[in-house]
Design a protein around this nucleic acid. Structure first.
Lengths: 341, 341
DNA sequence: CCTCCGTTGTGAAACGATTCATCGCACTTG
DNA sequence: CAAGTGCGATGAATCGTTTCACAACGGAGG
C-alpha cells in the first residue's frame, strides 16, 4: 500500500542505502542525488515506517504516561507539561488512563512494554505493582508523578502532601473551626493518606486530640463522591457535625459545595471548604474554592525531563524532587467564625 | 537487553517457529512442549516486541486521537468514549493535543502516519488540511469527531450545532432578551460558525433583523477569553449592551460568568448566560450554567466504532452521523425578564 | 512390509529501515 | 605513470516476529 524505501530507491535510480542516507545524513549525499531522491519521496508520498526504524534501532520514539483520572483537570494539566517536553524532544506520547484501577493500569503497562516505550511516567494506583517492577527490571525508566519514590533508586516528582494537608487544616483552625472533616478516598492512595496525615497532625496540635477530626472515605475522588460525603455530613446531628472540610481534591470539594448549596447550607458561613490541587475550575465555582495549589504543569514537565535524562543513559542520577504546595484562599473559607459551636 | 523469541526458543530447546505458535495458535502445539515454552517465557520475562509484529503483519495495533484542547473537559469525555472502544478491541490509543494550532496538528499527524496507526480520529483545526488528505490517500481511515464530513466519502460523528445555537438563542428570546451577544472565536472552526448561524437565524426570525445580535470573537475558546469578552460587554454603553450571551463553549461561558460576578453584574438578573457542551463543571459553576448538551462520551465511542469498522475493511460504508443537542436550563438564564428596554 | 495420513515441530523467507565495510572513480602527488 | 586520497554510492547483514512449505515420526490399513 504505502511506498517503502525500496520503492523510493527504484524510482530515483539509487540504492536503498542512499535513500536512507538522504533521510538520516543528507550531508554525505551529493546535491543532485539528494534532489533526485527527495523528488522520488515527494512523488511517491513516502512516509518512514517507524516500526522498522525502531526494530533496527533497538529503541522506540515514544513515551507512556499513565494517569489516575483523565477527567480530572489536574492530570490534563500535568499531561500538558509532559507533552511539551516529550514533543520537544521529537518523541510521541501515549497517554493512558487507569481510572485508579489496578487491572486497567496493568493492561496499559503491558501495552507500553510491548511498544517498547523509552520510558513510563506514571501516577500509580499502588506502591509497587508487579507490572511496574517488571518494567523496571527490564531496564525501562519509570518516573513517578505526584508520588514520592519509596527509595533512592528511582526518579519521582511529587508534592509535599503532608504539608499541603497541614496548610489546609491550619487555615481552618485559625478561622476558628473546631470540628473538621477530612474527605478522602478508600483506595489508599498515598497522596490522600499524606494529606490526611497533615490534617490530622494540625488538628491534634491545635486541640490535643483528634476527636475533632471526622474522616470520610468515599470510593472515588470524584464530584459525585463529594456530593455523597456532603449529604452524610448534613445528616449528622448538629452537635457532631463539622463546620468545615478539607477535601482530598478539588473535584470532591466541588461536589461537597454543590450538595451544601443544594441543601441550603451557606458556604462559607455555615460550612467552609478547602479543596486540593487548585485546578482552574476551583476559582470558577459557585463559591470560589480555597485550595492547596500544586505546580501542575511543572510537575509534568519536570518528570518528563527526568525521564528523558534517564532514557539517554550516561551518568543519570535519580532525583526525588518534592515541590512545596501553597494555600490559595478564596471565598469558600473566607469568613471568620467565632470559635466552636 | 530484553529477551527475544530466539532466547525463549533456545531456553526451551525448540525452534522459534514453535515459540511463535505457542504465542499465536497454542492449539497446534503439544501440551508438554507448550508448557516448556511457557516456562521459558516466564523464566526470561519475555515480552513480545510489538514493532516486529507490526512490521511483519503490515499493520499496527494503535489508533490516534487528535483533539483541539486537552484541557477542555468536553474532549476528555470524548476521549473516554474512544478509549473504551479502542481498548476493548485490544488496541492502544495515542492521544494528541493540537491546541487548535495547525502546525501542532500537522506534526501530530506526521507522527501518527509514521507509527502506521490503524486509523485517526480527529477534530481538525481546518476543513481539509493537506496532512489529512495525504493520510486518507494513503488509505488510513480518518473519522471526524464533532465535525461533519464535507462529503459522503468519509465517516464523521457530529452534533447539529445550528440547532444547538438556535435552541440557545430561542431560549433567551423567549425569556424576553432582545439584545444578545454571541461569543465565538476567531479561528473559524465550523462548529463555532454553525452555532453562530443558529443563533443568528433565531434572532433574525424573532426581530426581523440581526441588529440585535452582537458578535464577539476572541482568539481562543478558553475561560480567559470569556473573561475578556465579558469585560468588553460591560464596557459598552447601556443602550447598546446586550442582556444575555450565548457562548461557543462552556469554558468561555464560565469565564464570562466569572468576570460578570467580579464586576458586580448579577447573573442571571442583569445578564443571562448560555454555554455550550454541558461539561460537568457547568452545573458546578458560581451560577449553574444553562448549556447546550451534547452526548460527549457517545460521540467518542461511536466515532471509534466507525473507525474500527472501516479499518477492518470488508464492505464498510461511510456514515455521517449527526446527534441532536438538547438545552439544559439552569440558573444562569432562569429569571424571566420583561422585554428589552 | 509398504503406503498413507495426521500430528508436531522445523527453518528459512519475508517485513522496512539502518549501518558499515567496501568499491568505483576522479584527482592529486611524487 | 603508479600510488595514494577522498568523496559518493552500494549492497548485504541485521533487528524480532510471523508464516508456510516441508520434514520427521508413529500408527493405521492394506
Amino acid at each position: 500500500m504505502t511506498a517503502s524505501i525500496r520503492d523510493v530507491a527504484e524510482h530515483a535510480g539509487v540504492s536503498v542505502g542512499t535513500v536512507s542516507n538522504v533521510l538520516n545524513r543528507p550531508d554525505v549525499v551529493s546535491a543532485p542525488t539528494r534532489a533526485r531522491v527527495l523528488g522520488a519521496i515527494a512523488a511517491l508520498g513516502f512516509v518512514r515506517n517507524e516500526s522498522a526504524r525502531h526494530l533496527r534501532a533497538g529503541h522506540s520514539r515514544t513515551v507512556g504516561l499513565v494517569v489516575l483520572d483523565i477527567a480530572n483537570p489536574f492530570f490534563t494539566d500535568v499531561a500538558r507539561g509532559v507533552e511539551d517536553v516529550v514533543n520537544g524532544a521529537g518523541l510521541a506520547l501515549i497517554l493512558c488512563n487507569s481510572d485508579d484501577r489496578p487491572e486497567k493500569e496493568a493492561a496499559h503497562l503491558d501495552v507500553l512494554a510491548e511498544q517498547r516505550v523509552q520510558g513510563v511516567l506514571i501516577t500509580p494506583t499502588a506502591e509497587l505493582t508487579p507490572h511496574l517492577q517488571t518494567l523496571r527490571r527490564h531496564g525501562v525508566p519509570v518516573v513517578l508523578v505526584d508520588r514520592r519514590a519509596p527509595g533512592r533508586d528511582q526518579c519521582s516528582v511529587a508534592v509535599d502532601d503532608v504539608l499541603g494537608g497541614r496548610l489546609a487544616a491550619e487555615h481552618l483552625l485559625e478561622r476558628g473551626h473546631r470540628r473538621i472533616a477530612f474527605i478522602g478516598g478508600s483506595s489508599g492512595l498515598p497522596q490522600v493518606q499524606e494529606r490526611h496525615a497533615g490534617v490530622e497532625a494540625a488538628v491534634r496540635e491545635a486541640s490535643g486530640s483528634d476527636d475533632a477530626l471526622l474522616v470520610l472515605s468515599p470510593q472515588a475522588l470524584t464530584v459525585e463522591a463529594g456530593r455523597e460525603a456532603a449529604a452524610r455530613i448534613v445528616g449528622l446531628p448538629a452537635s457532631r457535625r463539622p463546620t468545615a472540610a478539607v477535601c482530598a481534591n478539588d473535584l470532591m470539594a466541588l461536589g461537597v459545595l454543590q450538595e451544601m448549596v443544594r441543601q441550603g447550607v451557606r458556604v462559607p458561613d455555615e460550612f467552609a471548604i478547602v479543596g486540593y490541587d487548585d485546578i482552574d475550575f476551583a476559582a470558577a465555582a459557585a463559591v470560589p474554592l480555597t485550595s492547596v495549589r500544586k505546580p501542575r504543569q511543572e510537575l509534568g514537565s519536570r518528570a518528563a525531563q527526568l525521564l528523558l535524562d534517564e532514557a539517554r543513559g550516561e551518568g543519570h542520577e535519580h532525583v526525588q524532587q518534592v515541590f512545596e504546595p501553597t494555600l490559595v484562599v478564596r471565598e469558600s473559607s473566607r469568613v471568620r467564625r467565632s470559635g466552636g459551636r
